[in-house]
Design a binder for these strands. Structure first.
Lengths: 170, 170
DNA sequence: GCCAACTTTCACAAAATTGTGAATCAAGCG
DNA sequence: CGCTTGATTCACAATTTTGTGAAAGTTGGC
């Protein structure tokens, strides 16, 4: 239970990792700059970064940062905060990033379901395509219903983990 | 329980819907042509389309189709079949599209988890960023474990639905 | 109310993506 | 075997996307 805090950050390696992480996000469909911003926030010890700091670490213009954070804010992947008595925004990941992300994405599932129902009506409810599409809709509705349960299970799981072994090396 | 089969397909409306559906996929991060191909297959009564038919309905070149189906095949969103005694490929969605898609995506979850663990090591396991990243990894591992249960529940749910009310006009 | 510190917007240039046509390749069938 | 149908690859052109610099907007604080 020692020798874990004070290892100095290898900024070079970290930056490289972050860029790779961003590339994975890009491969998953995200635009590049938002992906880089997200990755930068992920690997930051302070937990938050200002627009200027993002521009500095990513070697990008304020304009590019502005666009990226606007997008990330819209899709609820980051929070924009402003400390009272300052006029610079600071950006941070949500606590329990992925969990809160999924929770917010909930609406998207419903959207797809509704969209597919609409499509089923258009192709004809009784047709093979209609059948396929309402099955699809039902699938989305199903996972929409199941999701909260899984997320709650995660919350419990996390709590358990926190109780035993507060140190949690490895 | 009548008047549902023989409504003629309004091809114009269907095509329009399919293009809209494709646009949604694009918004979700998919490249345009694969999205259009997927949508076209989704709304097809026959359940399958040849490359030539895809080119025709989408007004796209064989080359574009070839690229799109290669991609879709790779990410396991469609199947490519060839009937014996023919040399043209026919493409179709999997049965229970989204379910099989999720099952195949399973590996991706593990990939992200592993990637995040690696990152946690790089930034330092004891650091705030390291904590954030191994928490993230754990989250992915968790849903990776939970997923099969949910998918099985879906299978049961679907079976139930099939048993009662085979017609399902609701 | 004005100044300064930040952020956003806009027009544009650079760069990456996409789809095309033409050529090449593969394979069933006579 | 060669012919014919169909799929794939390649170089290229067109479109779209991205990021930049500069100008304009906001908003705290004096």
């Amino acid at each position: 239970m020692d020798a874990m805090n004070d290892t100095p950050r290898d900024e070079r390696a970290i930056r490289e990792y972050a860029e790779g992480f961003a590339s994975n996000l890009v491969a998953a469909g995200m635009a590049r700059m938002p992906a880089r911003v997200f990755a930068a926030l992920l690997v930051t010890d302070g937990g938050s970064l200002t627009a200027a700091e993002l521009a500095e670490t990513l070697q990008a213009s304020p304009a590019a940062i502005s666009g990226a954070v606007r997008y990330l804010t819209q899709v609820d992947m980051i929070r924009r905060d402003r400390e009272p008595g300052s006029r610079r925004d600071v950006f941070r990941l949500y606590d329990d990033i992925w969990d809160s992300l999924l929770r917010r994405r909930d609406a998207i599932l419903r959207m797809w379901a509704a969209n597919l129902r609409e499509g089923a009506a258009i192709v004809g409810a009784g047709s093979p395509a209609g059948k396929r599409m309402s099955d699809s809709a039902e699938y989305f509705e199903f996972v929409h219903r199941e999701l909260p349960g899984v997320l709650d299970a995660w919350a419990r799981h996390k709590e358990d983990r926190a109780k035993k072994g507060l140190d949690a090396a490895q």
